[in-house]
Design a protein around this nucleic acid. Structure first.
Length: 466
RNA sequence: GGUGCGAUGGCCGAGUGGUUAGGCAGAGGUCUGCAAAACCUCGAACAGCGGUUCAAUUCCGCUUCGCACCUCCA
């Protein structure tokens, strides 16, 4: 497979250091609130990446950090009047629950920043040894960007052209030069009781340092792949590179991948625009995890994605179409063992693999999926599909679904129908046998009113809960 | 000011120097008592202006508009 590497700004074959085993680090949530769908776009992208690597027969070791100490978590804990861990724990659990709703595969390791303070202190020590860190008057420790010649290689930023952004006041910290960033932040009153001892005084780790220390601990000083949202490219990822390469003198990461932002109704998501949604907001509005997942992975990860309710509607209809096809194939296959695949299935099957391996081109992968749906339906319509072929097609759908993660996932449970529904269906069968069409239609309306859809086919009535 | 990205049919969203992306929505048809589903067919797009070329939606330049980052936003 080949992927777009932000470092080289080109597509390159993804070759892991250890053949057949991709080690990746993905920037995880800051657990001060429920994650929103913009966050989940990034996690869904990383999930697809992971699944495509697995699809290619490689092993994956994925590390996703939990940032459980920073300005926002500290502020939240102080406002709630509880210890930091007590404040963050529910959001960590909510995050894992949300991942399940979206069928995002769990990472191998979820290290929390507060559990890795010793590793962080050791890393700062190494930076001092290399002459890359200095202590300021207020007790904070800064990384000296000027000492690292290739600082800016990821963001392609020229230090001479850096200028103050609007995000942070310039006089906030006591730094030697603009561009230096804190690896250790000295305690102040706004931190409450959140502080750790260090050789440089009480304080807490800088955000960038957390990721460097934890990535190195679990994946080694040099590993394959690091991902995140495009907004993390600078300064976060640039600074991770600076810290790690500064300390080790070795390359940190071979491949960097970044996903574009999500917009909602064509606008940046924001609370004031009323288009700010957490996953649970959408679930409360009646959208399922698989419908939301469909929308999130339906675009290419490097293009901005416009999230709309029309798109969710389209996802619902599209998924129903896939479900109908899979159900029909399942019925056709019966208990027959998979036989030879119909020849027309080869093109979409191969096209699918080529698409996902070309920098995760999911839109094309979906086109392949729908080609299979269309051709399968067509073959069944013409009654030329054998049960063995249907069974073989189902194995193909399942193979594709190892990447999509939504064909077999999250479908409304079939289950039995309540006795009163059963009775209505039975009554309707009798009405139909008597060609009592108005009676049949009346019962169909009644079933619809109770949330059950009935369809007539050659095999009889098909009843489905809506 | 710097560094990048983008503009595709009613909506979402790929891709390509010449040949149907795909999904949703829409139109017509087949099937059906009707409906639904399914199948078949169809219409509809490449922001604007130049340039290169036999040929440009695709390559180049400019313009307009939009987005992202420029020190702790996925």
């Amino acid at each position: 497979m080949q992927v777009y590497n932000s470092l080289t700004r080109s597509k390159e074959p993804l070759q892991p250091i250890e053949p057949g085993h991709v080690k990746m680090y993905t920037c995880g949530p800051t657990v001060y609130n429920f994650a929103h769908i913009g966050n989940f776009r990034a996690y869904a992208f990383e999930d697809i990446l992971r699944r495509v690597v697995l699809f290619n027969g490689c092993r994956v070791t994925q590390v996703m950090n939990l940032t459980d100490v920073d300005d926002k978590t500290i502020r939240g804990a102080l406002a709630a009047g509880v210890p930091l861990k007590h404040f963050t724990e529910p959001f960590i659990q909510a995050f894992f629950a949300d991942l399940k709703i979206l069928n995002i595969q769990p990472a191998e390791v979820y290290p929390a920043a507060t559990d890795h303070i010793p590793e962080m202190l050791a890393l700062i020590e190494r930076l001092f040894e290399r002459g890359l860190a200095y202590k300021s008057d207020d007790g904070s420790v800064y990384f000296s960007v000027a000492k690292l010649p290739n600082y800016g290689k990821l963001a392609h930023l020229d230090r001479a052209n850096l200028r103050a952004g609007a995000r942070v006041a310039q006089d906030e910290y006591e730094k030697e030069s603009y561009g230096d960033f804190a690896v250790w932040k000295a305690w102040d009153a706004s931190d409450g009781d959140v502080a750790w001892d260090s050789p440089w005084g009480r304080g807490r780790p800088g955000w960038h340092l957390e990721c460097s220390a934890m990535a190195m601990k679990y994946l080694g000083e040099t590993f394959d792949l690091h991902t995140g949202g495009i907004d993390n490219l600078f300064p976060h990822h640039e600074n991770e590179i600076a810290q790690t390469e500064g300390a080790t003198g070795k390359p940190f990461v071979n491949f960097w991948m970044h996903c574009a932002h999500l917009r909602v109704n064509g606008e940046k998501m924001s609370k004031s625009l009323g288009n700010f949604f957490t996953l649970r907001d959408l679930v409360q509005k009646g959208w399922s995890g698989r419908e939301i997942r469909y929308v999130l992975i339906n675009g290419h990860y490097r293009q901005p994605l416009n999230f709309t309710f029309d798109a969710l509607d389209a996802a619902r209809t599209s998924l129903a179409r896939i479900d109908e096809c899979v159900d029909a194939l399942t019925a056709r296959a019966g208990s027959v063992a998979a036989g030879v695949l119909p020849s027309w299935a080869d093109v979409p099957r191969i096209f699918f693999a080529a698409s996902v391996n070309d920098d995760l081109n999911l839109p094309e992968a979906f086109a392949a999926l729908f080609a299979l749906v269309r051709e399968s339906n067509s073959a069944m319509h013409q009654e030329v599909l054998t049960p063995a072929e249907a069974a073989a097609l189902l194995t193909v759908f399942d193979a594709l679904d190892t990447v999509f993660g939504l064909i077999r996932f999250g479908r409304a449970a079939g289950g039995g129908m309540p006795a009163e529904i059963e009775a209505l269906v039975q009554a309707r069968a009798e009405a139909r046998a008597n060609k009592d069409w108005s009676g049949s239609d009346r019962i169909r309306d009644e079933l619809a009113a109770q949330g059950w859809e009935v369809r007539d086919s050659k095999e009889g009535q098909k009843v489905k809960k809506l």
